[in-house]
Structure formats: C-alpha cells, structure tokens
Design a binder for these strands. Structure first.
Ligand SMILES: NC(=O)c1ccc[n+]([C@@H]2O[C@H](COP(=O)([O-])OP(=O)(O)OC[C@H]3O[C@@H](n4cnc5c(N)ncnc54)[C@H](O)[C@@H]3O)[C@@H](O)[C@H]2O)c1
Ligand SMILES: NC(=O)c1ccc[n+]([C@@H]2O[C@H](COP(=O)([O-])OP(=O)(O)OC[C@H]3O[C@@H](n4cnc5c(N)ncnc54)[C@H](O)[C@@H]3O)[C@@H](O)[C@H]2O)c1
Lengths: 206, 206
DNA sequence: AGGGTTTTGTTTAATAATTAACAATTAAAT
DNA sequence: ATTTAATTGTTAATTATTAAACAAAACCCT
C-alpha cells in the first residue's frame, strides 16, 4: 500500500471530489488550483500540494482536468472492492443518516442496520436490512462490515462498541456523547456536535 | 481577552468537561490525568498540558478536583452572558439536532429556528420559535444570534449563508455538502458526514 | 525523620501541517 | 519567433501540535 497521506489532506480530498463532481455540470473541463481553493476557503498552494501528494499532475497554464482529478482522488480514497458500512441505532439520527447516505458514495456500501427495537428489526428500512443487535456479530461477519456508525443512546454506547470491535469492525464513527474505548488498530472518529459547537462558540468570542 | 488556545485543545476541553460531568456520579472528588486520558484514548501528558494551558492546577499525588476543573473549563469555553444560536432548516436533521441540543449546554442558548415551510413557521417547536426565512435578518438581530447551524437543502445553502453573514452571524456550522463562502472573520466549521466517513474508510484500509 | 514513589507542571525536542518561495513550463500576445 | 504572463510542482521555512524528559511537590512507609 502507498504511503499514508496526512489526515487533513484526506479530508480535503474528499471535499475537493464532491466539489468537482458538482463542477462537472459547469461544462468546463479544466479547473485551476486557485478556483478550487476559493471554493473551500483555502489557498491555491494547499490545493496543489494536496494534489501533488496523490501523484496527479495537471497541465500548466490549463489547470487540472476535472474528470481525471476525480478519478485520481477515487484511486486514493476508494477501495476498488468497496467497503461495507453499518448503522447501529436506527433512531432519529440514525434514520436521518440512513436516508442521507443512500446513493451518496458508490464505494461505501451501507449493508446493515441494527436496533434493539422489535418494531424496526426483521425488515428492510429504505432498502437496507435491519437486524436485532443479538445478531450483530454474525451479521457483521456475514456482510464483511468494516465500518460502523454508532447512533445508539449513550447508555449503551460502550457495550455496543465492544460488540462491534469483537466482531471485527475496524473503523467507527461515534455520534454519541460518550468517550469510547477501542484497541489502537481500530480507527475511531469522534463526531460530536457539542464539541464542534463549543469550538465555534469559543473562536467566535476570541 | 486571554491568548487563543490551540484548536485541538479547545476540542479536547469540551470532551473532558462532558466526561467530567458524568464522572461526578462516580462519587470520587478527584481524577488523575492518566484516568482522564484513558477515557479519551489520549495520553496523560496531553491532558496535563491542556489543563495547564487554561491555568488550572491540580494537586500533586491527588489529581484534579473534578468540580473545580469543570468550572475552570467553563471559564474558558463559556461566555458568561451566554451565546445565542439558531438552526436554519428544520428538516430531518435540523429536528434531530433541535431535540438533541435541548438543555445540553447552559451557555449556548438556542433562540430561534428558521424554515421556508409555512407548516413549520409561525409557531414554537419544542419550545423554540420558528420563523420564516424572510424574517431572518430581523430576528437574528433581535435575538443577537451569533452562531448558526445550517441544515437547509444544499441548493439554498450558499444564499442562506449570505443572508446569515449579512445579518451579523459570526460562526457557522455547515452540515450541508456545499462549500461555503464566508468572510474571514466568520468562523466556519465544516461538519460533513461523508468527509468523515471517507476519512475513516481510508485509514481503515491503510 | 528520611527514602522511595506517585503525580503534577513545565521545558525541550520531535513530528505534522501550513505557508512561502521560486524554478520550470506553456499558452497567449505581439 | 520572441516575449510576457499565468500556472504548476517542489523544496524550504514557518507555525502548530504532540510527545518526551525531568524537576518539584506530596504522600506513604518504615
Ligand atoms: N440527535 C442528534 O442530533 C444527535 C446529535 C449528536 C449526537 N447524538 C447522539 O446520537 C445518539 C442517538 O440519538 P437519537 O436522537 O437518534 O436517539 P434515538 O433515541 O432517536 O435513537 C436511538 C436508537 O437506538 C436504538 N437502540 C437502543 N438500544 C440499542 C442497542 N443496545 N443496540 C442497538 N440499538 C439500540 C433505539 O431503539 C433507537 O432506535 C444519542 O447517543 C445522542 O446523544 C444525537
Ligand atoms: N440527514 C443527514 O443525516 C444529513 C447528514 C449530513 C448532511 N446533511 C445535509 O443537511 C441538509 C438537511 O438535510 P435533511 O435530511 O434535514 O433535509 P430535509 O429536506 O429533511 O430538511 C431541509 C429543511 O430545510 C427547509 N428549507 C428549505 N429551503 C429553505 C430555505 N431557503 N431557508 C430555510 N429553510 C429551508 C425545508 O423546509 C426543510 O424543513 C442537507 O443539505 C443534507 O445534505 C444531512
């Protein structure tokens, strides 16, 4: 596998790609680094550097060929065989995410939902099967799920995480307000609204 | 105003505080840096350094006094007069956030909701008044709203942002999948699920 | 009381990320 | 064809963040 890219670069590449996909509609085939930069409130140098890191080259005086750049980013971000994802806890937030994710990223396959509520399990929701948590380990293995989105109530966040890790999940997005304990080979993304909001609040005042 | 803290430190302080508030239930009055560290998958040094930066001191061999530390973090993160927040776009996601936020952080006052849908406007939702977007500028000024959570459909994200900035909003959490354009004195937090999910996917593979 | 141990606070070093600098290239203008 | 201006790719410098190192204080044990 190629060398690990900086975390921040990975984030930006994902953002660039989305912007570029929309940009396709504009009818222009090329885009300049400073244009892409302006669309993301960052600098042309940053953009060029990020693109350099994935080994793609634009053409001078012309910019980057949009379609090629999208492909080049895909080559870095996407697993060619796809990666399977589950949502655990299909409540308010889980449902919103479920609908939002649908058809968004072709390389990320939402394969399973898990809940404890019998009303929700044993059927498909928006085309995705929803299983009872009791089947979690078996289903995670069956569907080869490597990534889980955790949207359960905070009281059960830690035990659910333990189940997921035990079942072989390698990456976790934690939407709950509970700090989780994972082995260091599991990638944990804390995705807490309050933290981000308090950060905004702080930097607005400072 | 005191010196600006590092972005990452601010994030962690927010997380520490939440953990500490829960920890109050444990009955213990003190907590060690390594305990707090373990709860957040980071190191004791990091914790001590963060705490040092806000000027709070623990007692050696005893650790940090939980209640005092919570207060000390509040002194840094919270505006004593509170800060007012609005949610713009009360759909699936906006509603989930609305319910989630309720009563969570006393220093952040959710003062207003905005939507274009006449079904939703002109009344209170969960105790918060929901106004039509036409009144946005006036209501933002009336309620002195400094922070906005943007959960409108992506098609209108940019125009809505322009309205908000014009009306005087100083901080923005962008939940939409659209890169926004803001003056540099407005603090913009991109809060995109896809980006984070793709990042997890990348680091799981690498 | 004194030696050993634990834990904090702070300084110094290492690593990661951003920004600046600039050479190389190429399209456009003359 | 030559010059000029624009734009990329890359290296070097700067700044931000994390980790390591260690002295100082506080407790514990004898
Ligand atoms: N709503 C938000 O905007 C928001 C924002 C940030 C974080 N959060 C956090 O996300 C989590 C979910 O929030 P929500 O508003 O969707 O709550 P919710 O109560 O609407 O949904 C929780 C879901 O999890 C299911 N569940 C309960 N126990 C379970 C278990 N052991 N295994 C599997 N599923 C189980 C419930 O049946 C329910 O469907 C909470 O921890 C909340 O703090 C929510
Ligand atoms: N649902 C998710 O999990 C999720 C996750 C990430 C990002 N997002 C993004 O968040 C946004 C909202 O998602 P959603 O699922 O809540 O959509 P939604 O359609 O349920 O809600 C959108 C709301 O915005 C209102 N609205 C429309 N035009 C408006 C305007 N000009 N001013 C004010 N309000 C207006 C609509 O009436 C509706 O209530 C979308 O841009 C989506 O891409 C959603």
């Amino acid at each position: 596998m190629k060398k690990k890219l900086p975390r921040k670069t990975v984030e930006r590449l994902s953002e660039y790609r989305r912007t570029l996909i929309n940009y396709l509609d504009s009818g222009r085939d090329y885009i300049f680094s400073h244009e892409l930069a302006d669309m993301h409130n960052n600098t042309a140098v940053q953009v060029r550097r990020d693109i350099m890191l994935i080994g793609y080259s634009g053409v001078q005086r012309r910019g980057y060929k949009v379609k090629e750049l999208i492909r080049a980013i895909g080559k870095v971000l996407d697993d060619p065989r796809g990666q399977n994802v589950a949502i655990v806890g299909v409540g308010h937030l889980g449902t919103a995410i479920l609908h939002y994710l649908k058809g968004k990223r072709p390389a990320l396959h939402l394969k399973a939902l898990f809940d404890i509520d019998k009303e929700k399990t044993g059927r498909e929701i928006n085309g995705i099967p929803c299983y009872p948590v009791e089947e979690l380990a078996a289903r995670v293995r069956e569907h080869k799920i490597g990534i889980a989105i955790l949207t359960v109530p905070m009281e059960v966040a830690r035990e659910t995480t333990a189940l997921l890790v035990e079942a072989g999940v390698r990456g976790l997005m934690n939407f709950t307000t509970v700090p989780l304990d994972v082995p260091e080979d599991v990638f944990l993304e804390e995705y807490d609204l309050i933290t981000s909001l308090e950060k905004v609040a702080y930097f607005v005042r400072i």
